[in-house]
Design a protein around this nucleic acid. Structure first.
Lengths: 253, 253
DNA sequence: TCAATTTGTCTATTTATCTATACAACTAGA
DNA sequence: TCTAGTTGTATAGATAAATAGACAAATTGA
């Protein structure tokens, strides 16, 4: 687990050396490699480890410091500040609001934008609607401890839930809005997970720098009877969060 | 879904422009943006779209061609060759061997290395063993259509399954080996999913270039009674595969 | 056959990244 | 107070990435 030394970085790969080194240090931190001292080795030692110049290591550390992973103090060294990713549970019945409980102090999610539009092919398919049927689209940003961690685009049947977006201000959560439409319960029926380099639009919302990674979940929520309710597309900042899949919670309440 | 034009790339980000562009084209392809022609726009059009020089676009397309995503023909254009990622199902009872059925022609997984060693902290915790108890470690590479897609490190209780690795040559699959130890059935009890930049060791096994993304699953499989059997750590090439989570298959057989 | 459109190659220049070296500023401990 | 070890800053040079423009080579359809 704590294999040391002789990490390699590749040149001409399209990824700057400092970024490759930052990635590897981040991984080493989360592997617990520096847990005995709670700080990184000195810049000169790191430069030797990756066979690069000290300034290249400094660029890498600078990036990690801007991310809040480490804190640099002149004359003393570089201290590890954040070790673990948040764990976001994914189960048949988990809601975003409950998910991160205990791991963070504050959690918020706010409606960034919304609209009614004709359903695109994947949306109409997921919601079992006619092609180009009207759907409500919500754009949500989820934050944990004031840091954005997720970016969701969510679609609902526009005929069945015409003023879904308007009710958001009043109720503040999807579950509460659905209740106001007399939908008492719903479950997650499928989730597809993929990883991508961050695309420009999401970059800003999640406060990421290009080259950052996003975990994408494509979710369908449905009523207990199986009628689809919501099709959602969420991007998580992969360096701040991991997904924790619960295979046990499947028995209906 | 098919928002066009004015994609942005960021300079001085540590990610070369050609690589950012390759990432965005790859995403656009899998979003079905070019499905009407099955080919990319010309290099000059793409250069305008991303506001870069034509040569930079050429570098991006060159990378996609080496990956097998597109095929370039002089005088004709650039043709899309591979559109979708493979879907790897994750459910309470799914096995790797069954998982990709129907999507690919051939599937193999071979034992790359193995050994017996004292359990590290995460391993002993996951398998409910004493600290540093002996465990069997397997290093596996999974391929689909001759292309490597997954890289697994797997641990089993070394006291209970002393010659697990040896039996691999004979039986060829985890399920079969466990049967030979009279373990008739087992289920997946937890899965944690995260995304990382590829680290050097895994790069070679998955034939990736640095900067590539990996999806990591951390899995615990257990007997029906709950006794943990296997702790496994799998890296998938994120540009070749996505994870498909089945929330329904949870009722015991 | 010709014109238009596509990718392929070449050379030169600019800009960004990485290296190399030196020294300043700060901290901790002897 | 001094020394060793750390991070911070500055300058110059080498290497890699990106731009710019010109033209060759292949394909398609008129």
């Amino acid at each position: 687990m704590l294999e040391n030394s002789l990490d390699t970085v590749e040149r001409r790969s399209g990824i700057a050396l400092w970024r490759q080194i930052a990635d590897q240090i981040r991984i080493a931190i989360s592997n617990g490699e520096f847990d005995n001292t709670d700080m990184l080795p000195g810049e000169i030692a790191l430069a030797a480890r990756f066979s690069v110049n000290r300034h290249t290591v400094r660029s890498a550390i600078g990036a990690l410091a801007r991310e809040g992973v480490v804190r640099v103090e002149q004359g003393r060294g570089t201290f590890i500040q954040r070790r673990e990713r948040l764990q976001y549970p994914i189960g048949r019945r988990t809601r975003f609001s409950e998910g991160l409980a205990g791991q963070i102090r504050s959690r918020q999610s706010y409606l960034k934008d919304h609209g009614i539009e004709p359903a695109s092919a994947p949306v109409s398919k997921a919601l079992s609607l006619e092609a180009a049927a009207p759907v409500v689209r919500l754009e949500l940003v989820g934050t944990a401890d004031e840091l954005p961690v997720s970016r969701t685009t969510s679609w609902f049947d526009g005929t069945r839930f015409p003023d879904f977006a308007e009710r958001y201000k009043e109720y503040g959560s999807i579950t509460a809005i659905l209740k106001s439409y007399k939908v008492e319960d719903y479950v997650r029926v499928s989730t597809r997970i993929s990883a991508h380099h961050a695309a420009s639009a999401t970059l800003k919302d999640l406060q990421l720098s290009p080259g950052a990674i996003m975990l994408r979940t494509e979710t369908i929520n449905a009523e207990l009877g199986g009628r689809p309710l919501e099709y959602a597309n969420t991007y998580f900042a992969a360096d701040r969060i991991e997904l924790d899949i619960d295979h046990k919670s499947a028995a209906g309440s």
